[in-house]
């Protein structure tokens, strides 16, 4: 069994469970939608204001839904002690991490794909004027967030206070990626030249690499001790 076959099997299993139950997508979608709608009523969203705050509102909606995704994904493994069954499989244990991470990322990207057009309609701000750059910003921001989040979810899944501990541990660690993603997305929405925003793109890339390498190195110990 190769590493990639292990990752593929775990992602396929998670997708299959989600297609059947639709628990994650429906919950995260509703949560994101509520966030976007509440911000729309809470602030004065005249054209200028809306454009300035668009990236912040969008990323708040994305991140809350991402946090829900990861917690739910690991609860499936906690039920009936399925995590032990995964750990017993003859695969590199980092394949479990990458499998869980990729499925969470797919769910988060799906929610982002649904919520972005709704945001555009509600706020009357086209956040996708430069679609490739914005998609890259969304993808890298989500990847960094989910990478750290998957690791934290693995640590906190067996804690009684996991709903509190997860975000408490996650948000400080993931702050650089969140700030960079908001700045890059916001700059694109405000029509700033991409050259001026490259510093944020570099921050996103560097932190993504660091998070992925650290997660790959420590995941084995984390799931054993948690």
């Amino acid at each position: 069994m190769t590493f990639f076959q292990g990752v593929k099997a775990i992602v396929a299993k998670d997708l299959s469970m989600e297609i059947r139950g639709k628990e994650i997508i429906s919950t995260t979608f509703m949560f994101s939608l509520l966030t976007v709608v509440i911000f729309n009523f809470a602030f004065d969203m005249a054209e200028g204001n809306a454009r300035e705050s668009a990236a912040g509102v969008l990323w708040v909606a994305f991140l809350f839904s991402g946090a829900l995704t990861m917690n739910r994904g690991f609860m499936y493994e906690k039920d009936e002690d399925c995590m032990s069954a995964l750990m017993l499989a003859p695969i590199d244990r980092s394949a479990i991490f990458f499998g869980k991470m990729l499925s969470s990322l797919l769910f988060m990207l799906a929610t982002m794909t649904i919520i972005t057009p709704i945001f555009i309609l509600l706020y009357n701000v086209n956040v996708m004027e430069r679609p490739l750059w914005q998609a890259l910003s969304f993808f890298l921001g989500a990847t960094g967030f989910i990478t750290v989040g998957t690791l934290i979810a693995a640590i906190s899944v067996n804690l009684r206070a996991r709903e509190m501990m997860g975000p408490l541990l996650l948000l400080p660690v993931v702050a650089p990626v969140v700030i960079a993603a908001v700045k890059f997305s916001g700059g694109l929405i405000m029509n700033q030249p991409v050259e001026q925003l490259m510093i944020w793109m570099k921050v996103l890339l560097i932190f993504n690499v660091v998070y992925l390498v650290v997660a790959w190195m420590v995941f084995d110990n984390i799931i054993e001790e948690s």
């Binding site: 469970m17 032990s84 003859p90």
Partner: peptide
């Protein structure tokens, strides 16, 4: 190693066959 615990270590959201297929694939 085959491990049988007092917990089933199977996914309640999958069918019996899907559970076995998943673990069969994990074990190659």
């Amino acid at each position: 190693i085959g491990y049988i615990s007092h917990q089933s270590m199977t996914y309640t959201q999958l069918s019996a066959r899907e559970n076995l297929l998943f673990f069969a694939r994990l074990y190659g």
